Every structure is written in C-alpha cells, then in structure tokens.
Amino acid sequence: METQADINYNRIAEAIEYIVVNFKSQPNIDEIAERLHISSSHFKRLFMEWAGTSPKKFLQYVSVEYAKKILKEEQATLFDTAYETGFSSTSRLHDLFVNIEGMTPAEYKNGGRNLAINYSFAESPFGSVIVASTNKGVCYMAFEDDEGKAFKNLTSQFPNAIFQRKLDLLQQNALFIFQNDWNKLNDIKLHLKGTDFQLKVWESLLKIPFGKLSTYGSIAQQIGNSKASRAVGTAIGSNPVAFLIPCHRVIQTSGTFGNYMWGGVRKAMIIGWEGTKSNP
C-alpha cells in the first residue's frame, strides 16, 4: 500500500524530472505545482522538506550550464588541492574516507558462501533504500521502493550467503549520513566484492568533495590510466553501494549528468541536494 511518504516522494521526483527537462524555460513554482495538482504553497513546503532548498535554487543548480561552469573552473590541480586541504564547513563530506576491505578472491568467486549478511530497509531524502552488511562492513546499498525487488537484487549479488533481516550498528552509522550527521563518518566501513580495478575506481570516487562533480576522464587520470574512461564508466556502473560511494558525482565531459543505476531523476536530485547543502 502506497504511504503518504511515497506519494510525496513521487511528487517531488516528478517535479525534479520536469525541472531537469525544462530548465531552459525556467519554469516557475506555479507552473510546476499545477502539474502536481497541488497548491504553490504546499509544493514549496514539500520541496523544502525533501530537497532542503527552494525549487528556484534547485533549478539553478541542476541546470546543465551550471554543471559546465563547475567543470570549467575545476582544474585537476585545484581539485587535488581542495581534497587535500579540505573545507571549513562540517556539512561537506570531503573528509569522508570509508575504510574499504575487499573480499578475498575465494569470497568473490563463491558468491558469498559462508558470509552472514544482515539487511534492513530505511527512508532517505531520495526514496527508500536497502542496506546490507557483513561483520566487516556495509556490502550493499541501493535505492528501491519495492522491498521484494530490493531483496532479490541483493541476493543476486551474494547468491550463496546467509541473510537475516536485522538493522545493525554498521548500517546505522551509514544511514546517519542521510540525516546530515557527520559524526559517525569515521565509523563507516565497507566490505566490497570487486576486482582490484573496481576497488581502485570506487576508492577514487570517495575523493570527490561533497557538492562537487568530476568526469569519467578525470577519474581515469587519477587511477593512472587516462585511456580507461570506458572501463571506469563500467566500474562506476557496477558500484554496489549507492550514495556512500558517490558515483552520482561523476558526469559527462559535456556537462550532462549521464546515466545512473538508480535513475537519472534521482541522480539530479542528489546532485542538487548536495550542491545546496554545500552552498547554503
């Protein structure tokens, strides 16, 4: 049964999609609210609640021209300097360094045999999420409104594991991020299944500062293989941990946001949300 939270999320998702498609015409609040069949005042309150900013500011941020502007100004040296020196605002995730422990070759090969995996469901500003963890760290996070489908996707990643629906401390520490609680960042650990190349790409994504964007080519250069943009794209598309490993911060060189495993509208929503949080 669809809850009020689901209805509200779907409304904001529809609004975000409309903004992304029609940003050049700069649609006003009344126009968007009319499409959602709600009053303008209700729409503004709802948008602020889910996106943390006004529809107008969100529209300004998610425009492709703004993304191009960021890319033009973000040279590699400045990018590296920004990451190394950090920012003063605690609302940024530049200092998020998730401890990554890759699974052993045997664990990788046998589909998680002998692994005990806890999983649970939660709500985020971007829809429902499923999060799963081993005793070493979070191994999976994905946006999915259908719990049955979410669990099926999880088990396909670890077909031989033992699953228990249980919220544990590792999951809780990860979910605190959605509440703007950065105090638990150092407690976040990941236990990932991937090749050495994938782990290297995923780790490089953690170096993209909160509220900033990078490109596939830039990531390829960072890992020491400037010609591997396509392989980098494939590795990013295989990211098993949504949001914590910020693959949503990687866009095309042209400035367009590009594909996202959990939907282009959701990607635009997350980019805009992070942008407004880092530039209040």
Rank of each mutant, 00 (worst) to 15 (best):
T253F: 08
I32A: 02
S124I: 05
G211D: 02
Q4T: 04
T234F: 10
T104A: 14
S218E: 15
L244P: 02
F126R: 13
A15H: 00
D95I: 09
F43G: 00
K72N: 13
W50L: 13
F257W: 12
I32W: 05
E2S: 06
F121T: 09
H94D: 15
V232Y: 04
K212I: 13
V265D: 13
M261F: 05
E107N: 08
H94M: 15
N22P: 03
I271P: 02
N10D: 04
E31C: 05
Y260T: 00
D168L: 01
I19N: 00
E49Y: 05
F197P: 09
S156H: 11
N110C: 04
A13I: 01
K149C: 13
F151H: 07
A76K: 11
E274F: 03
N114Q: 13
G137M: 01
P55E: 01
E144H: 03
V21Q: 03
R165D: 12
Y61V: 02
S91R: 10
V20I: 13
N114K: 07
Q26G: 08
Y83V: 11
S218V: 06
F23M: 09
K109T: 08
G217N: 07
A268C: 12
F58M: 00
L167T: 13
S218F: 08
T215K: 01
I12R: 01
N28L: 01
C247L: 14
Y61R: 02
S156F: 12
C139D: 00
H42P: 12
R35C: 05
E107A: 14
Q60C: 10
L190P: 00
